[in-house]
Simulated scan of single mutants.
Amino acid sequence: MASLATHFTASLLLLPLGGRRLLSSSSLYLHNPSHYRSKPWYLLHPKWKNLDFYTLLIALPILSFSHLFLFLASPGHPPTPRFAFLQQSAVVFLFWVLLILILCSQNLDPNAGIPDTLLFVFSGIAFLIDYSMNGKGVVGLGGVVYGLLGGVTVVCAACCFYLSIRPSAFFAEFMLSLAILLKGSWVLQVGLSLYTDAFAFEGCGKISGAMTMGQVDVRCDLEEDRLRGVALMNLVFIGHAAAVLTLSFVLFGLLCRYRSMRCGEASGPLLAGIESENMLMHPIPEFEID
């Protein structure tokens, strides 16, 4: 149940993050494609509109310490699932540090702040560390499911590294938003499929703490059940990807059609700040224009 709660919490954080990023970046790009530049986080002005940002600043360290507590409170002899809590704690802590760096960059003098390039590089490294730790020690059917999640994480990292070189590449920003959304939906699917009996594969059970040569797997009665489970999860993943892609294109189309009705940054001080930045020769504090 603790593993299901972990996956549910990750999904709860990632889905709004990906959706907000998709809305914000698409709105800015459609307003002025030639001057578009991606940001590690699209902060709004006034500050109260950044409620999700400050919520994450508070929630991530609590989540990280919760995983650490679960690791320390786990049984004495260390099965792989126990160390998963420690790995998840480290990954969550890294992304919390990233938010701290973004906050410092926005509130420091523009000439002394942390460049967006370095923030994107740090984000890419954090995603790669997440990839290296995700589902570690899980093999067989469980390993296939976590492998799909790892592939999405690698796409997130690649987009971050590319944006650190070319922040004006909207297609990389669009792919990053889609990958975060897909990661959020798939991590919930992983939790339901591997850590609950209600959504377990036919002929198979959920992942247990039992280990074989330091590895864990979903127990299946027959090899045919395992192969059917692999095929089913590949099909479900394609369904998740198609749903996220369709939703994103529909949203982008609506933003194109109703420019005057865009939410958040598209209709307030954000766009006014960007227009001022294009007109003035000296820099403006980023917190006002993000």
Rank of each mutant, 00 (worst) to 15 (best):
H240F: 07
V244A: 07
F252L: 14
F199T: 04
D225C: 13
A243H: 08
C220D: 00
W186N: 01
D197G: 10
L235P: 00
L227T: 09
A200F: 02
T212Y: 09
K206C: 00
F249H: 12
C263V: 15
A179S: 06
R262A: 05
I207S: 00
K183L: 15
L222N: 12
G205D: 03
E265F: 08
C263W: 15
T246R: 06
M213P: 04
E223Y: 12
M233A: 08
A198R: 13
D217M: 10
C204I: 05
C204H: 00
F249A: 12
S267A: 14
S260K: 15
C204M: 03
G229H: 05
G191A: 09
F252M: 14
F199P: 03
R226S: 04
L227R: 14
L188W: 07
D197P: 03
E202G: 05
T196H: 02
Y258A: 11
G253Y: 09
V244K: 06
F237E: 00
V190A: 05
G203L: 05
L222H: 14
S248Y: 03
C256A: 08
V190S: 03
C256P: 00
R262T: 09
S185V: 11
G203Y: 02
M261E: 11
F201I: 07
A198E: 10
V187F: 02
L251I: 14
W186D: 01
D197I: 08
L245V: 11
S185L: 12
R228L: 11
G205H: 02
R259L: 06
I180D: 00
T212G: 03
R259Q: 10
A242S: 07
G229P: 02
M261Q: 15
G253I: 12
A266P: 00
A242G: 06
G191L: 07
F199D: 04
D217N: 09
A241G: 07
L245S: 08
H240G: 03
E265P: 01
G191D: 05
F199V: 05
L192R: 06
L194E: 01
L176P: 00
S185E: 10
L254E: 04
Q189V: 15
L255H: 09
F199E: 06
G229D: 02
S185Q: 09
A179Y: 02
V190T: 01
L192H: 03
I238T: 09
M175N: 06
Y258G: 10
A242M: 11
I180P: 00
G209A: 14
S267R: 14
S260W: 15
M213F: 13
L192S: 03
T196C: 04
L181C: 11
A241C: 08
L176E: 01
Y195L: 04
A266L: 06
Q189R: 12
A266R: 08
T246N: 03
G229M: 09
V216L: 03
R262G: 04
V244R: 04
A231V: 15
S177D: 02
S193D: 06
F201C: 01
R259H: 06
M233N: 09
D217G: 04
A231D: 10
V187P: 04
L181R: 10
L188A: 13
L232D: 08
R226P: 00
G209P: 06
A210M: 12
V250F: 10
L194K: 01
G203V: 07
